[in-house]
């Protein structure tokens, strides 16, 4: 049963159209959202979070439409984007102190656990962190309020291989606790390692939204790795 339903999401820009995007995210599943730069991943995620207004289509979380239930829904989801850092000159502890006021479910234990795991120092400011550590800070904020759905826009970009592995292990741990993890990436090995489902977008259209096993069955040639399959699909899409 899908905990998040995206139906016929369409957004037209002068030079790009997100065209009838539909997919679901299952509870306790890791869904990799894959596509090359400019394919529409971030626009889709922003539209899911009501940051971008689609021309048509609907998004629902937990069976409730985002429109009209935004406040309630946002309490149960976590969002992180790899690149953006908020309040670069404020101490992390001050940012956290404000953030936790908005969530009844803020979990001090999880917060402490991930602070330690990510080796973050809350006396530092975001501008004192490397890009990788900034990703971890955003994740820490998302993970500390017991979100049932995590929507992560390129969370592994900028992370070293060890941190990336650590993060993918955390995704698996969260999934085992029933959390739905939806993350966009263009690093196919991340999908290969931990995703249960794959949503593949190309030029603003969903090419495929199925389980990883079905994706491989439907698209991969014999002996072909997932990365090779994706590259072949992208090449044929570019030539079309």
């Amino acid at each position: 049963m899908a905990i998040v339903e995206v139906k016929d999401l369409t957004k037209r820009y002068p030079s790009f159209t997100l065209d009838g995007v539909s997919f679901g995210i299952g509870s306790g599943r890791i869904t990799g959202f894959i596509g090359r730069n400019g394919a529409g991943k971030t626009t889709t995620i922003k539209a899911m979070l009501n940051l971008v207004h689609p021309d048509s289509g609907t998004v629902s979380f937990f069976g409730k439409p985002m429109a009209g239930n935004e406040t309630e829904i946002k309490k149960h989801i976590g969002y992180s984007t790899g690149a953006v850092s908020w309040y670069p000159r404020k101490k992390i502890r001050d940012i956290v102190d404000i953030e936790k006021r908005f969530y009844d479910s803020w979990d001090l234990e999880s917060y402490g656990k991930y602070m330690e795991l990510f080796a973050l120092d809350d006396r530092k400011t975001p501008m004192e962190l490397s890009e990788g550590m900034k990703v971890k800070l955003n994740l820490l904020l998302a993970l500390s309020h017991k979100a049932e759905v995590l929507i992560l826009d390129e969370p592994t970009s900028g992370l070293d291989p060890f941190s990336r592995n650590e993060l993918l292990d955390i995704f698996t741990e969260l999934k085992n606790h029933g959390v739905a993890v939806f993350f966009s990436t263009h690093i196919i090995s991340d999908i290969e390692k931990c995703a249960d489902d794959i949503v593949y977008i190309s030029k603003g259209k969903i090419v495929s939204a199925v389980s990883k096993d079905d994706f491989i069955r439907n698209h991969s040639l014999d002996g072909e790795s997932l990365e090779d399959t994706m590259l072949r699909l992208e090449r044929s899409s570019s030539n079309a």
Partner: peptide, 15 residues
């Protein structure tokens, strides 16, 4: 400069 509007819009509050 601090991306405050985007941060705020992502908090569990109405826009």
């Amino acid at each position: 400069e601090t991306n405050d509007i985007l941060y705020s819009a992502l908090l569990p509050i109405a826009k």
